Simulated assay, not measured.
Amino acid sequence: MKKVLVVEDSATARAFYRSTLESAGFCVDEAANGLEGLERALLDRYDLAIVDINMPKMDGYAMTRELRGNPDLLGLPVVMVTTEAGAQDEAKAFDCGANYYIVKPADPRDLTLTARLLTGSRP
């Protein structure tokens, strides 16, 4: 079973991602901010990280840069899901190392398809 780390400060959004991804057959862990997410990523092995941009302690941009700076986590696919809909925000996400960018609210089918594609999972 593929393992996904959801890094999001909103408990409601975390619950939505968990429900959507678990119903698609993924195992899901959660973190409430980028610092906690980075710690979890360093302590366990994940097949995908779903990362919000605007969070306390460490935002998604900084977390993704830290992931990309660690040789052991370099290959971890990162999907940024955020309310930031500007082209400059999307460009910044990709510059930090994100593999995909979704503007909230995330469509459950798109989220599931993206997770499957980036983890090599079959329906």
Rank of each mutant, 00 (worst) to 15 (best):
V103H: 11
T119N: 04
R40G: 02
I53N: 08
L38E: 08
P71V: 06
Y46T: 04
E90L: 06
R45P: 05
K104N: 14
L113N: 07
T112G: 05
D29E: 15
D89W: 10
L113P: 00
D29A: 14
V79C: 11
V6T: 07
D95E: 15
E8S: 08
G25F: 07
E90C: 15
A13M: 13
L118W: 01
R116K: 13
M55S: 06
Q88Y: 10
V4A: 07
K2D: 09
L67V: 03
G69W: 02
R45Q: 11
V81N: 07
S10K: 08
N70L: 11
Y100D: 12
D9L: 08
F16T: 12
P77R: 02
T20I: 05
S121W: 00
L74D: 15
D9V: 03
A87S: 13
S23F: 10
Y17A: 13
M1Y: 02
A24I: 06
E66P: 07
M1V: 14
L73K: 07
E39H: 12
G37H: 06
D95Y: 02
L117C: 09
G37V: 01
G37D: 01
Y100V: 11
N99Y: 05
V103G: 04
G25R: 07
S19M: 08
L76P: 01
G34F: 07
T12V: 14
V51R: 02
P108H: 09
G75L: 06
C96M: 10
E39L: 04
G60D: 07
G97D: 04
D110E: 12
D47K: 12
L74A: 10
S23M: 13
F26Y: 12
V103F: 08
L118A: 02
L117I: 13
R40I: 00
P77M: 06
